[in-house]
Simulated scan of single mutants.
Amino acid sequence: MTWIKFTLWLLGIYSIYYAALLTWDFFRGKRGITTNGQHELTFVEHIEPVHSHADLVDHHDQGSSVVHSGGVRLKELFNLCREESVEYIKAVSF
C-alpha cells in the first residue's frame, strides 16, 4: 500500500465518520426546543468598585523619579534611549 492509497483510505474513513455525525445531529435536532425561558440560568451579583492605593497617591509629587509612566510611540522611545532616559538590560531585536 502506497502513501497515497493510505491517505485516501484515511480521508474516506474520516469523511464517512464526520458525515455520520452530522447526519445524526441533523435528525436528532428535529426535536422542538420550547423552553420559553423556563430553564434559563441567570447569575447576578452586586459588585462595588474598590479604590486601590495607586489611585489615592498623588502622581504629581516632585520627589518621584518617574516622570512618565504611560505608553510612548516608537519614535519617542528612540529619543528617550538617545537621551539615556531608558535603562534596558537586553538587546533590542527588530
Results as ranks from 00 to 15, higher is better:
K5G: 08
S93R: 08
G32E: 14
Y14P: 00
L80E: 11
G12I: 04
I16H: 01
G70V: 03
E87D: 07
S85C: 12
F26L: 15
H60D: 13
Q38V: 11
F78G: 00
Q38Y: 09
K90A: 02
K90I: 02
N79H: 05
Y18W: 14
M1A: 14
T23A: 07
T23C: 03
H68C: 12
S64N: 13
S85N: 14
L41S: 06
G12N: 06
S64L: 05
I16Y: 01
E84V: 05
R31E: 15
R82A: 08
V92S: 00
F26W: 15
E87K: 13
H46W: 08
E84H: 11
E45S: 06
F94S: 03
T2L: 07
L56T: 12
G12Y: 04
L77V: 02
S65E: 09
G63D: 14
T35Q: 12
F6M: 12
G29P: 00
S69H: 10
L8K: 15
I16K: 01
Y17R: 03
K5C: 09
R28P: 00
F26M: 10
R28T: 12
I47W: 12
V50C: 01
L22M: 01
H46C: 03
S15F: 13
L21A: 05
L74A: 03
V86M: 10
